[in-house]
Amino acid sequence: MRLMNLKPGRQARFVLAGLPFVLLVAAYFIGSGMRLAENPNDKLLPALSSMAQAVKHMAFETDVRTGSILMLSDTLASLGRLLWALAISTSAALVLGIAIGLLPGANALLAPFVGVASMVPPLALLPILFIVMGLGENSKVALIVIGTLPCIIRDLTMRVLELPREQLIKAQTLGASTWQVALRVVLPQILPRLIDSLRLQLGPAWLFLIAAEAIASDSGLGYRIFLVRRYLAMDVIIPYVIWITFLAFLMDAGLRLLQRKLFPWFASVRAE
């Protein structure tokens, strides 16, 4: 049988999905064991026990100097920035995306500008943001917004333009005004697509967050891993990276679930 026609069963699929993770973990601990056998003080690939010790210290003990649990306060600081920025991005993109997609006038006015703006590398703007807005929270939130907003706007604009012409005509023959078409036909059909768009932008959003925190911050997950880098504290960095990945994965899964629950009609539309 051809390879392209061999479909793994349920169980095989489960095993196959787990395999790369198991292999990565095994490779790490074999490497770690070999290095530690040679030099017990090696910091590059710490053993599970030292990482567990570090996690215990960071996540379950109060830091003497700041009086807070570091991993918790880092997580709250980072998530706060991220969620603020994504809330601003999505709401602005929703309004602008629908306007540009539905109104030819708004399209003529804004589409070329958004097209150019989305080509500006956001990190190149970071110095400007720091100079103009200072080193506080605003500049970090602004970086994430600038980094994600143009892409979401462009994506939503395309989704609006993809709505069948027949639907927009039909709504008008039912007497809908432009506002009513936007509210009752376009908006509800764009919301599930916004979730798709947002899921794709989670990666860039985290990237800009970590970057901003690495450069100028006094709290946050990105700040912490770049801080302890100076001491080669791989036993802290690795658990932090795993934690960040887990948070991002949770957000992605949550959005997917939200889409399925709130928009039960969407799966069959997408399948078309």
Binding site: P164, E166, Q167, K170, Q172, T173, V185, P188, Q189, V269
Partner: peptide
């Protein structure tokens, strides 16, 4: 298009949502 003229197309005449 306006409310005095209704329409039915071959496809996409109803709203999927």
């Amino acid at each position: 298009p306006d409310a005095d003229r209704g329409v039915v197309f071959q496809r996409y005449s109803v709203f999927p949502h």
